[in-house]
């Protein structure tokens, strides 16, 4: 079995499920919560699909990382279509093609080994065609 931090969010991670505050619309991900970061108060949340497309809010290209990463590695903050903001690694994209506002799409990929088991999650590539 995967370690607890991976196991706890397995469902949300695999299906890109988020939780939207019924009062202000803030989308919490990946853990379901009972307090809202934007309302700064206890709140009710509804389960939503976060969608698979989004836009780059900002990005960097990582040149110095520990072992286990391929560099240069583009990393972005992405606003997904249904309101969630997430961190994402960008693949299938030359660093010089990255721009603020670039449309990207989520793609299920191998992330890392966790106690001998593969962990999958989403990376993002530019929307093609």
């Amino acid at each position: 079995m995967h370690t607890p931090p991976v196991w706890r969010i397995a469902r949300e991670n695999a299906r890109l499920i988020g939780y939207r505050c019924r009062r202000c619309g803030f989308v919490e991900f990946p853990e379901p919560r009972k307090t809202c970061k934007r309302c700064r108060a206890p709140a009710e949340f509804e389960e939503i699909s976060m969608g698979t497309r989004g836009k780059i809010v900002s990005f960097v290209v990582q040149h110095r990382l520990p072992e286990g990463f391929e560099t240069p590695l583009p990393l972005a903050v992405i606003d997904l279509e249904n309101g969630a903001r997430v961190y994402g690694q960008i693949v299938e994209c030359k660093p010089e093609e990255l721009t603020v506002g670039l449309e990207v799409e989520a793609d299920f990929r191998v992330f890392y080994d966790d106690a001998g088991l593969r962990v999958y999650s989403y990376k993002f590539h530019p929307v093609r065609g």
């Binding site: 931090p5 991976v6 969010i9 991670n13 991900f29 990946p30 900002s58 990005f59 960097v60 990582q62 110095r64 990382l65 520990p66 286990g68 990463f69 590695l73 990393l75 903050v77 997430v86 961190y87 690694q89 603020v100 992330f111 890392y112 966790d114 962990v119 999650s121």
Partner: peptide, 23 residues
């Protein structure tokens, strides 16, 4: 660096956090 993070910023370093603001 956050190595074993699924959505908490895998591969994000201190320079990356501030670099995102620079971009």
């Amino acid at each position: 660096t956050a190595v074993k993070q699924l959505w908490g910023g895998r591969g994000v370093t201190m320079p990356a956090f501030f670099g995102l603001h620079a971009t």
